[in-house]
Amino acid sequence: MRSEDVDRTNLLFDSLNEALNTFMIFEGSGGEQTPGEPNKQPVTGDEGTEKQPTGSEDEKTDQDDEKKPQKGFSVNDKNEQQLQDLMTDLQEHIEANNLNAEMSLTDISSGIQITLRDKIVFDSGSDHIQVNFIPSLDEITRIIAKLDNPIIIEGHTDNRPIHNSRFTSNWELSGARAAAVLHYFQNNGIDPNRLRFTGYGEFKPIAGNDTPQNRELNRRVNIIVLRK
């Protein structure tokens, strides 16, 4: 061959060799090599043995998620749900027994407040719980026993002075009524460490003491299941 032809041939081979060297291959699922990616080498450990996968990516993700703290959930959240369930159960009892005029529920900042009108719980001027109210008080006891939240029991009266040999003022009457409910809870399974009571007498009215209807509203016992 002429030297010019040899030179052209060498240039052609060099170009083909350069092009083929930049063409990448990878191993397909059947073991054959397929154009597209560089050869993959097995990963080996310290002893030169091939490492085996320890689990799928989904399994690893699930394990990682279990180790992470759950966002947006706390013990307080669970207790709050329990308080709302308590309120639902009590409301169902009130409606089933037509007690809307005698019992009411209020979600206040400190907890769930159950208000009992005195006429359904006590005789006038007395701290003895009426027999007819015992089934409802039993139901209240059963529902609040599901939680371990602290409970405050408040006694309230209207502003009319009391005149009997047992109570010298509305302070004593309101405190005795609150204590009567507390003792009922204690005697029926509520942990006494959860309980405390107070008597406010006539000094925390929710209505003016100017009509019989308003005075009736002021005579009440509040059972407050406190938030934690």
Score class of each variant (00 low, 15 high):
residue 186 Q to Y: 09
residue 187 N to V: 05
residue 188 N to P: 08
residue 188 N to R: 13
residue 188 N to D: 00
residue 188 N to S: 06
residue 189 G to N: 09
residue 189 G to Q: 02
residue 189 G to D: 04
residue 189 G to F: 01
residue 189 G to T: 04
residue 190 I to C: 10
residue 190 I to W: 10
residue 190 I to D: 10
residue 191 D to I: 00
residue 191 D to C: 04
residue 192 P to M: 00
residue 193 N to K: 14
residue 194 R to D: 03
residue 194 R to H: 09
residue 194 R to W: 05
residue 194 R to C: 07
residue 195 L to F: 04
residue 195 L to S: 08
residue 195 L to Y: 07
residue 196 R to Q: 13
residue 196 R to S: 15
residue 196 R to C: 10
residue 197 F to Q: 11
residue 197 F to M: 12
residue 198 T to K: 15
residue 198 T to H: 15
residue 199 G to S: 13
residue 199 G to W: 11
residue 199 G to H: 13
residue 200 Y to Q: 11
residue 201 G to L: 06
residue 201 G to W: 05
residue 202 E to R: 11
residue 202 E to L: 06
residue 202 E to G: 09
residue 202 E to W: 08
residue 204 K to R: 15
residue 205 P to M: 06
residue 205 P to I: 00
residue 205 P to Y: 01
residue 206 I to M: 07
residue 206 I to A: 02
residue 207 A to E: 02
residue 207 A to S: 11
residue 208 G to T: 08
residue 208 G to M: 12
residue 209 N to V: 04
residue 209 N to Y: 01
residue 209 N to Q: 05
residue 209 N to M: 01
residue 210 D to W: 08
residue 210 D to I: 13
residue 210 D to S: 14
residue 210 D to Y: 06
residue 211 T to K: 08
residue 211 T to N: 07
residue 212 P to R: 09
residue 212 P to Y: 07
residue 212 P to F: 02
residue 214 N to R: 07
residue 214 N to V: 01
residue 214 N to I: 01
residue 215 R to M: 14
residue 215 R to S: 08
residue 216 E to F: 05
residue 216 E to G: 09
residue 217 L to V: 01
residue 217 L to I: 07
residue 217 L to R: 08
residue 218 N to K: 05
residue 218 N to M: 08
residue 219 R to C: 10
residue 219 R to H: 09
residue 219 R to N: 12
residue 220 R to D: 06
residue 220 R to Y: 04
residue 221 V to F: 08
residue 221 V to R: 05
residue 222 N to R: 06
residue 223 I to K: 06
residue 223 I to Y: 06
residue 223 I to N: 05
residue 224 I to R: 11
residue 224 I to G: 06
residue 225 V to I: 12
residue 225 V to F: 01
